[in-house]
Design a protein around this nucleic acid. Structure first.
Lengths: 139, 139
DNA sequence: TTGAATGCAAAAAATTTGCATATTG
DNA sequence: CAATATGCAAATTTTTTGCATTCAA
């Protein structure tokens, strides 16, 4: 993670304690909205950051590919570390329930997008919408 | 679509011209944000609807499974008719470019979610994030 | 130095909510 | 008639911006 500075510099950006703290907070939280990140950063004991700094930091870190985000709840985005490997979220469009599925369910999808479009899909933490087992039975 | 009324009633809801107009607008637009839908409805010549009615109508129609939405641009949701079968959106996390892939790329994913979780995924218009061909080459 | 980043406060969006009134079933 | 929906306007919530100041390289 010490190459964070190098990665930032490679893109004409700079390493700041704010960005380090935001990145750390995302790692600590796993999944978090900008708002939760603001709180978490504030809780790290080094003082609060302005909301705009958090937003701008997340943008920068995302541009670097260090964090990513999904819309699990259809409202606010939820950020996570890019390498924080895990699952695919499954969200019911009707009742809103959120489930999880192992990443492998998307292996084929990832392979095809790579083959067909040269696209490197990041499905970790991706949200797939549809109807859950119970809701799909309702007409 | 005449069974729209029946479907609504089956859930204790009612058929209103507003809901019909919102549904029609979504169909006409293909993909649209709540804001665009407000404009489109207004343009149908029958007078404008209040923004809140559009939001509430979209919720109702979505609850019925007639429309769905995705977050192509990471900001505002984009609604579409559920049956308006088409493609999967592929969004580059770095440059923001949006591409498309045939629905079949997700066949396997859909099958597995069904098998493993009994989840009926609706991947039409789903947005898959990652890095496009050109951006993935940048370190 | 010097351009990039931060903080702050104000501005913009984007949604939601309360409530009286109108409508559907 | 009774319950549900609408309209409106105000209130929230979420994100963005302008600008002077600070800081990393």
């Amino acid at each position: 993670m010490s190459d964070l500075g190098a990665r930032l510099r490679a893109r004409g950006k700079r390493l700041t304690t704010q960005r380090e703290r935001v990145l750390a907070a995302v790692g600590r939280l796993g999944h978090a909205t900008p708002d939760e990140i603001v709180e978490a950063v504030e809780a790290d004991g080094t003082g609060a950051l302005s909301v705009s700094t958090v937003y701008r930091s997340l943008d920068a870190l995302q541009e670097l590919g260090l964090v990513g985000h999904t819309h699990v709840d259809h409202r606010t985005p939820s950020y996570h570390l890019a390498e924080h490997a895990t699952h695919v979220h499954v969200v019911c469009r009707r009742c809103g329930a959120v489930g999880e599925a192992p990443l492998e369910v998307a292996d084929e999808l990832v392979a095809r997008l790579d083959d067909q479009l040269g696209f490197a899909a990041d499905v970790s933490h991706a949200a797939v919408h549809g109807l859950c087992r119970s809701c799909r039975e309702v007409p």
